[in-house]
Amino acid sequence: MTIFLIFTLGTILGSFFGLIIDRLPEHSIVSPRSHCENCGQILIWKDLIPIISQLINCASCRYCKIKLTYWYSILELSCGTLFVMVWLEKVDLTFSLNCLASFLMVGFDLKTHAFPLWIWLTFFVLLSFTCPFDIGVLSCILIAIMTEFSSLKIGSGDWLYLSLVAFSANFFQLTLCLFVASLSGLLYYAFNPKQKKAEMPFLPFLFLSYLCHLFFENDALITYFSLIIFRY
């Protein structure tokens, strides 16, 4: 029962994150009340239950029957699962804060290819309390500043995100994260013809590669892959 309550709290936070991503920066998160973008109908409590409402309504508006995206439920499920993992002590606070920051920043990157700076700053301050930042964090921030004055292939927002990752990743893990993200992005670009005519959000690939570092806790293995990267 306790795990169910923890999961529910996580889904509620995920629902709030969805509201932030959906409305900012164009609209207020306070008003107007939650409504269907197609028919304008005000949503009541039974339409706003995380995950369950979308399942019951088959991801459609209960009033006009227009199909809704599943990303709200995915975000709610992700936050709920993260809360349970923290409760069961499967992940530490630093990793969980990084994931929460990632949910927001990736959502904005998919939506507008940019994210509000206050989101990064908020989680940067929170992470600073969980563990001291080192040269890796400062280096990513410095590179992010440099990208504002030069035309690098990776944007300043991506480096700011990597500065958060650096709180829970050493140099080799950070290098591997960037390598895997770049490789994944290139493969996606190569096999998705439509993407070749549009700007590609990179934060989703960085986040997925960051999650992969959970499976590379062996420093010897990380060192081996990193040496391969630098060699070739």
Score class of each variant (00 low, 15 high):
residue 1 M to P: 02
residue 2 T to P: 05
residue 3 I to D: 14
residue 6 I to A: 10
residue 6 I to D: 08
residue 7 F to W: 11
residue 9 L to S: 06
residue 9 L to M: 05
residue 15 S to C: 04
residue 16 F to Y: 10
residue 17 F to C: 10
residue 18 G to F: 00
residue 18 G to P: 00
residue 18 G to T: 00
residue 23 R to G: 02
residue 24 L to H: 09
residue 24 L to M: 12
residue 27 H to M: 12
residue 27 H to I: 06
residue 29 I to Q: 08
residue 32 P to V: 15
residue 32 P to A: 14
residue 35 H to G: 00
residue 36 C to W: 10
residue 36 C to S: 09
residue 36 C to D: 13
residue 43 L to P: 01
residue 54 Q to W: 00
residue 57 N to Y: 07
residue 60 S to M: 00
residue 61 C to W: 00
residue 61 C to T: 02
residue 62 R to P: 01
residue 65 K to A: 02
residue 68 L to P: 00
residue 71 W to P: 00
residue 71 W to D: 04
residue 71 W to Y: 10
residue 72 Y to W: 11
residue 74 I to E: 02
residue 74 I to G: 03
residue 75 L to M: 09
residue 76 E to F: 01
residue 79 C to L: 07
residue 82 L to T: 06
residue 84 V to W: 03
residue 89 E to D: 04
residue 90 K to I: 05
residue 94 T to P: 15
residue 97 L to K: 10
residue 98 N to Q: 15
residue 100 L to R: 05
residue 103 F to D: 03
residue 104 L to A: 07
residue 106 V to M: 12
residue 113 H to D: 05
residue 115 F to S: 06
residue 116 P to Q: 08
residue 116 P to M: 11
residue 118 W to S: 14
residue 120 W to S: 07
residue 125 V to H: 04
residue 125 V to A: 14
residue 125 V to T: 08
residue 125 V to S: 11
residue 126 L to V: 07
residue 128 S to C: 03
residue 129 F to S: 03
residue 130 T to S: 08
residue 130 T to H: 01
residue 131 C to L: 11
residue 131 C to E: 10
residue 134 D to A: 04
residue 135 I to M: 07
residue 137 V to D: 13
residue 138 L to H: 09
residue 141 I to C: 07
residue 147 T to M: 10
residue 150 S to T: 12
residue 156 S to Q: 08
residue 157 G to V: 00
residue 158 D to G: 06
residue 160 L to D: 01
residue 160 L to S: 03
residue 161 Y to Q: 11
residue 164 L to K: 12
residue 165 V to Y: 01
residue 168 S to C: 07
residue 169 A to V: 11
residue 179 F to S: 13
residue 180 V to W: 03
residue 184 S to K: 02
residue 185 G to T: 04
residue 188 Y to L: 06
residue 190 A to C: 05
residue 194 K to A: 12
residue 195 Q to I: 07
residue 196 K to N: 03
residue 202 F to W: 08
residue 202 F to S: 06
residue 203 L to K: 13
residue 206 L to W: 09
residue 206 L to E: 12
residue 207 F to Q: 04
residue 212 C to Y: 04
residue 212 C to W: 05
residue 219 D to P: 11
residue 221 L to E: 14
residue 221 L to P: 08
residue 222 I to Y: 01
residue 222 I to S: 13
residue 228 I to W: 12
residue 230 F to P: 07
residue 231 R to K: 14
residue 231 R to I: 04
residue 232 Y to N: 15
